[in-house]
Amino acid sequence: MRILNICAYTWQSGGPPKIIFDHTEVVLRYGHQVDILSPISPGEKPYPVPDGARLILCQRTPVISRFFREFSIELYQYLQQHVHEYDVIHCHGLWHFGTLAPFMIDRTVAKVITIHGVLDRWVYAHHNWKKQLMDTLAQKAYLQRADLVQINNSDEQDDVLRYLGHSHSNIVIIPNGVKVSDFTTLPSKGNFRQKFGLPTDKKLVLFMSRLNAKKGLDLLLPGFRDYVRQYPDTVLALAGSDDGYEATARQFIDQHNLGDSVRMVGMLTGDDKKAALADADLFTLPSYSEGFSMAVLEAMAAGTPTLVSDRVGFGEVIRKHEAAGLLAHLTVESVTIGLEKLLGDDKLRQRITLNAMALVKAQYDIDVVAKQLLDEYSKIVRSK
């Protein structure tokens, strides 16, 4: 098959590029062709591309793309010229120009849309007037026309039903996956602390995600403040690129004199990310909304115990799988209590680590989930 993924394939885009990268490595091993079509702006850094795949970059159209997200005349022109070279076009997210354009141009090539959590009530409520305008123009109709809608969990099934007003004719739950082998061997403990000047005699709590309002930093920062007042032998590392919340976070840290207890280390990649997971006593993401958090999945694969909200995309699975992580409510007090419970109980963290690693290996290894999606591609291509 010839497969085209359409996504803002940059480091600034969060989880989808990583998901596409890992899936593509598996799909290429099965002998298929994969291209990735991405809008990009000056200054953005493209995400790495697996050997054998092709990345096609299209400049966002100035001015218009500020209001119509990802708008790119170059992207539209590429699709006009090449759309029929593909068997499957896979669009990632909604309300992006790259999700609309293939439907505007063609009715014959099989099309897939992955929701990536954007129909969650919390997410949908933000910039809602723009979304309602695009829904009126085309988005709902195009989602209905998709040959396959991929969702990550049963909550997203409810979200699609609420959004469309009825069920979609072909919707399938396929979770995100992680390349478990990437986390078999981690950097030696202490590397991350040494590189970023973090104390070696304090426990380390790690937040590693975009600095965005939806990630629950308004819960984590005051929750950690209350915790560290009682247990000053702990440091919180905030690792992630700014996505609108860095200034607020810095203001909170300064206002509450947390400079020695909270460190901002920027976005981590490659060995630095693995070193952070190896050094951390606890990973936390009290997010308001995630389609299916790759950051949490990677922490679990690395053997780092997790304190997360039940909105990370697979909270119920974590809850049911013999406590593969600790779930916090979306309150400051719950975050504080979670920190106290986990950081105060070494045996509980060890038990969570073992349960989480077993869960990831059994259900979320990339070889398993990528093959599921590939099989769904084959079904819709045969049906066209």
Rank of each mutant, 00 (worst) to 15 (best):
Y9R: 03
C91N: 11
Y288F: 11
L359K: 03
D365W: 07
Y231W: 08
D367E: 15
S188H: 13
N355T: 07
I3G: 01
F283R: 00
Q350M: 03
S13Y: 10
D271T: 11
E340C: 15
M264R: 13
A146Q: 08
T136C: 14
M267P: 15
A302L: 05
L79W: 07
E322H: 12
F283P: 07
R66H: 06
K384H: 04
L258D: 06
T108M: 09
H116A: 07
S241F: 13
L37W: 08
G15D: 07
R66F: 04
L307N: 11
V317G: 08
T114I: 03
E44C: 04
R2S: 13
P199G: 12
S41K: 15
P17N: 03
Y78Q: 04
G259I: 06
H23L: 13
H116C: 10
P102T: 01
L307F: 08
S261Q: 14
Q59F: 05
E376H: 14
K347R: 02
P62Y: 12
D310S: 15
C58E: 07
D365P: 08
L285N: 11
Y47D: 03
H127N: 14
M134H: 09
S72N: 11
G98Q: 02
D35A: 09
L206P: 07
S383Y: 06
S209D: 14
R311D: 14
Y47L: 05
R319E: 14
A276W: 06
I3V: 07
Q363F: 13
L238M: 14
G223I: 02
K347V: 01
Y30H: 14
A110Y: 04
N152D: 02
N212C: 09
Q80E: 06
L220C: 08
G15K: 05
D87Y: 02
P199H: 04
I173N: 06
P17A: 04
